[in-house]
Computed example of a mutant assay.
Amino acid sequence: MLEIPLLLVVIIVVALIFDFTNGAHDCANAIATVVSTKVISPKVAVIMAAGLNLFGAFLGEEVAHTLGSGIVNTDMVMGCQALVLAALIGAIAWNLITWYFGIPSSSSHALIGGLMGAAVAYSGFGTLNGPSIAKKILLPLVLSPLAGFAVGFLFMSLLALGLWKVSRQRVSSTFHRLQILSAAFMATSHGLNDAQKTMGVITLALFIFHEIDTIHVPFWVKFICASAMAAGTALGGWKIVKTMGHRIFKLEPVHGFAAETSAALVITGASAFGAPISTTHTITACIFGVGSTKRLSAVRWGIAGNLVVAWVLTIPASALIAALSFWLLDLMGFVQ
């Protein structure tokens, strides 16, 4: 009879809870613009996003490998079975705090910060895979919002150039329909990048518990992670939808199409590279880029300042919570 350690079961359940909150928290990434421009109803948008998040999660595992072996040195944390649990507690806590206040922070960076904080609490900074963190975490952390802003600005500028003789009514009518396709592309790319993050964490836990010999994502892990994210997406994140869809600048269908398509292109490219970027950072930056083509004053830059503060705080805040959680688990006797 197959025997699975109870702590591993707890870790997998907590990881799926994180995946669920990730889907609920980041639901706005895929549907904020399509809902705010009233192309489709919130209910239909959420169902579409949930299904395509599920589909996208099966399209690759490069990001999962980065989370599983590119943040902590697996040989140094091999005996620490509570590390992943502490990391997840830190990520979930930060997710819930920012979800409650309607702040579009990064679930991805919360999870990364949680892993880093728990690993450092276990055995110091030497547990961290410095070169991989610099190349696939910190560099994309800086570049993905910049790329999102640039691609959004360029894509919208090209659209405006090609459509300048077309009546506003016709443009609105055309992109009213096309935005459904861009939202679908965005939802698929979100599943491709974000669902893999929890896959990587569960795979790391399986490796630490000697259930697998290498960092390779089993099919059943893909299935349960994709399903949990889809269920979370179905719950929705309406406070964040409101922030992204209404408070940055007033979106029209053509703007929504440009922002979603630009973000999906950036996210898909990062996923192929194995970079666990923030889909929240990316779509928000794309919305700012698209809005800036209208006129700089059309964008509410005060909102940008608040979002940047949340982005900067996410990794250290979740790392601190994870470290405190690890020390508490140690006091409770869960650390061997």
Rank of each mutant, 00 (worst) to 15 (best):
S106R: 08
L6E: 13
L59E: 02
I31Q: 15
A15H: 03
G237W: 06
A323N: 03
G124S: 05
A82V: 01
G68N: 01
H210C: 10
M199R: 12
L331R: 11
F185C: 15
L6W: 14
A319L: 12
V335R: 03
I212D: 07
S262V: 01
A275S: 15
A15I: 08
V166H: 06
S105F: 01
I137R: 10
M78Y: 01
A264K: 13
Q179D: 09
I303S: 03
L331Y: 04
F153V: 00
S157L: 15
G274Y: 00
T98I: 11
I89W: 08
A28T: 09
H176I: 05
G23P: 04
I112C: 07
M332W: 05
N73M: 01
F223E: 09
G256T: 12
F257L: 13
H216L: 12
V77R: 00
F223P: 03
L251D: 05
A110P: 02
K294V: 15
R300V: 00
A272P: 00
F207V: 10
V84I: 13
T243S: 13
T198S: 13
I315H: 02
G200H: 06
T127L: 02
G245D: 13
A119K: 00
A82Y: 06
A86D: 04
A183N: 02
L161N: 12
P276C: 10
A119M: 00
A57C: 02
T293I: 07
R247G: 07
F209L: 04
G102L: 07
I180L: 06
I17D: 03
I4K: 05
L307T: 02
F155K: 12
T33E: 01
E61T: 13
V44W: 11
G291A: 11
I137P: 00
A234T: 11
G333S: 05
T279N: 11
V309E: 08
A195W: 00
G79A: 02
F55I: 14
T233P: 00
A93D: 04
V308T: 09
